[in-house]
């Protein structure tokens, strides 16, 4: 019977050898494109085109104000480093002949208050509203920075990670800003990241850039030297992870 036992043992070992965990390195990936119709509110100091004055406030008003959320789905809307992304709740869709409008009011101590209408239309999912604040008493027109230089296209894939939840990944659908590391320049708008992906022509080979997204009232940054045509970039999403 020793032969029989050996055969049984061999069969069992053969079966056991296949036992790799099927969920090894599998994550739960969550998209943030819940709010489809969005507007990036980008506030700058109108005199320089640089970072928004400290303490700049945003107020949303109008008939549809109750249907507007920050990109993370929160009703608490405030500027972070001069930017915030707002949008319509997921159940609200502007009809082709019936756009939805709100008024955005930006104020800061010592600066003129600016009110601007933001209109969500059926055929435009993303829009950028640039607002330059001018000091009270000044007649200067807000300056706007020249568009970035165009280079060869570079593809970036952003993945949001959560330090406290290793099995969760976030595919951000957000507006992303960039600046050359150490340049002393303010962050400039790079483009819209759709489910983590963006292709841009604003990055020069051999240079290092800081990329910044603002989500849920927090800014998250990642740095990358550009030496090839595509990169996978990982951003620690911090407290935003609690949103999922």
């Amino acid at each position: 019977m020793r032969v029989a036992y050996k055969i049984i043992l061999s069969v069992l070992l053969l079966v056991a050898s296949a036992c790799t965990k099927p969920t090894e390195d599998i994550k739960i990936i969550v998209d943030t494109n819940i709010i489809k119709y969005t507007a990036l509110i980008h506030v700058t100091d109108g005199a320089t085109g640089g970072i928004a004055p400290a303490g700049a406030q945003i107020k949303i008003s109008g008939g549809a104000a109750q249907q507007v959320y920050e990109l993370s789905g929160k009703k608490d809307i405030h500027l972070t480093a001069g930017t915030v992304t707002i949008g319509l709740g997921p159940d609200v869709h502007p009809a082709a002949n019936q756009p939805i409008s709100i008024t955005v009011e930006i104020s800061a101590a010592g600066y003129k208050t600016v009110s601007q209408q933001v209109t969500f239309t059926a055929n435009q999912l993303q829009q950028i509203i640039n607002i330059g604040l001018i000091k009270t008493g000044s007649n200067q027109e807000p300056v706007s920075l020249p568009p970035p230089t165009v280079y060869m296209p570079v593809s970036l894939n952003f993945t949001g990670t959560c330090a406290s939840r290793n099995n969760l990944q976030i595919r951000p659908s957000v507006y992303v800003f960039f600046k050359e590391t150490g340049s002393g320049m303010p962050f400039q708008y790079l483009g819209y990241v759709d489910k983590g992906d963006i292709t841009t022509s604003y990055l020069a080979l051999g240079k290092t850039y800081d990329f910044q997204i603002t989500y849920g009232g927090e800014s998250h940054q990642v740095r990358q030297k550009i030496e090839q045509a595509s990169y996978n970039l990982t951003i620690d999403m911090g407290n935003a992870c609690n949103n999922f």
Binding site: L14, V15, S17, A18, T20, K21, P22, T23, E24, D25, I26, K27, I28, I29, V30, D31, T32, N33, I34, R171, K195, G196
Partner: peptide, 27 residues
């Protein structure tokens, strides 16, 4: 195959990893 819907749609991108994980599940 991995398929996601709604806000979980991007999970489809993990089909390759899942395939690697179960390649030896043949017994």
């Amino acid at each position: 195959r991995m398929v996601g819907t709604g806000i979980l749609e991007s999970n489809a991108s993990q089909t390759g990893q899942f395939q690697t994980n179960i390649n030896n599940y043949r017994f």
